[in-house]
Nucleic acid binder design. Structure first.
Lengths: 65, 65
DNA sequence: ATTTAACGTAAAGTGTACTTTACATTAATA
DNA sequence: TATTAATGTAAAGTACACTTTACGTTAAAT
């Protein structure tokens, strides 16, 4: 599961901590997501999509298998 | 988190077990999702979207708070 | 040279998505 | 009425998303 969180976050001029607070998760969660250490819950994906004003599919790129 | 899984599954003429096998989860997972007992991982959401040939946002309806 | 903001790592703990097993219920069909 | 397919419930276990804490690194600003 790839994602554009870092680029989007920078486009919106947010620090990792800003973003974490905006969507109500820890900074660690943002770091781990940007480093693609795990894929998020769908709830977190929806929160990011809402904040970045786009579709989940524009943030996360699903790779089969 | 609401969803249309049951309706979509029936449109595609699949049993819960069929659907479970198609996307590689247990039947219990399908039951729990249809009963909206929990919200899925984004990976599961992507698998469903692919199978049903639509966007995640067309299957799952995010309600804030 | 020191401080500070932003980013990063590591590791242990908690909550929850998902599995597994076993059994109950309903409706259709022989 | 007995069988079978599909759906459901309950409960214990496993995997992993996410938190918390504590500390390290880098670059910019004072």
């Amino acid at each position: 599961m790839k994602n554009n969180i870092k680029q989007l976050r920078e486009q919106f001029d947010l620090t990792q901590e800003d973003l974490a607070k905006e969507i109500g998760v820890s900074r660690q969660t943002i770091i781990s997501l940007e480093k693609e250490r795990y894929s998020p819950s769908i709830i977190l994906a929806f929160k990011l999509a809402k904040l970045f004003n786009c579709q989940i599919e524009n943030i996360f790129i699903y790779e089969e298998n």
